[in-house]
């Protein structure tokens, strides 16, 4: 259905698109940014009339923070600046749906922040933003709905809370000493000893049994903290069985 909408002329008008590798995706790189050449080109291709395209290009440059850039050709821009130009061209014609392919790839922390803020702004404006990323924390921070795709196959789709709730909750136990009770291993705990402190991550359901084991050994408990389940946990849990099977096959 989405493909039909994109291919259809009227529907296409409301779609914005930006892919990674900005040095390759923007042509010609010898167009200038300052006088709006590149944005006007893509704006006109998107059906923006010539009377308003200059004004919109100027607005977009301001929006992505390139208004004060020197009158230089695109080929002289940094990756972060190109990324911003790419995003500007994707949203110049006011699309209702925007596709970004790894929009924060290769950016420095400030660049990532700027792009992330821009995507939040688009969301607030009521636009639907699709973006692909390998950084799951970005997806978790920005997305209402997430689809996990591995090797071309959909592993799961839904709201972040829905997906992460399917992963069993875990609890972190910290105690003094370097002794790790053998009973904890049987509870499926992941134990680590750092200096004179030991730490174990255990399923929430095993919390009481784990605490009993620590008491039996007379260990000094420091803290018991529930661990927030992240999208990464969901991803790892989803893929682990497949990888284990692949490993056993190998």
């Amino acid at each position: 259905m989405a493909a039909i909408e994109i291919q259809g002329l009227e529907k296409t008008y409301s779609v914005g698109f930006w892919r990674k590798k900005p040095k390759l995706a923007l042509r010609p790189l010898n167009l200038k940014v300052e006088d709006g050449e590149i944005l006007e080109y893509y704006g006109r291709l998107s059906g923006v009339d010539s009377k308003t395209v200059s004004r919109k290009a100027s607005e977009m440059l301001e929006r992505v923070g390139l208004k004060d850039s020197a009158n230089v050709q695109l080929r002289k821009f940094s990756k972060g600046m190109l990324q911003r130009v790419g995003i500007a061209q994707a949203i110049l014609h006011g699309p209702r749906v925007v596709f970004f392919d790894e929009p924060m790839s290769g950016l420095d922390p400030m660049g990532r922040r700027e792009v992330r803020d821009l995507m939040v702004e688009l969301k607030r404006e009521g636009k639907t933003v699709f973006f692909s990323t390998h950084i799951l924390s970005d997806a978790e921070a920005l997305c209402d709905r997430v689809a996990i795709v591995h090797k071309g196959e959909l592993q799961g789709v839904g709201a972040v809370a829905e997906l992460t709730s399917s992963v069993g909750s875990r609890v972190e136990l910290i105690w003094r000493g370097t002794i790790v009770p053998a009973a904890l291993q049987g509870l499926g705990a992941e134990c680590h000893v750092t200096g004179d402190t030991a730490r174990a991550l255990i399923p929430e359901s095993s919390q009481d049994a784990a605490l009993d084991a620590l008491r039996r050994e007379r260990l000094h408990l420091v803290s018991v903290m529930p661990v927030r389940t992240s999208l990464e946990d969901y991803f790892v849990q989803k893929l682990r069985p497949a990888q284990t099977m692949a490993g056993s096959r190998a």
């Binding site: 914005g16 995706a25 998107s46």
Partner: peptide, 10 residues
């Protein structure tokens, strides 16, 4: 694949 940026327009 620069074509994608153009052909994603109408």
């Amino acid at each position: 694949r620069t074509l994608y940026t153009v052909l994603s327009r109408p």
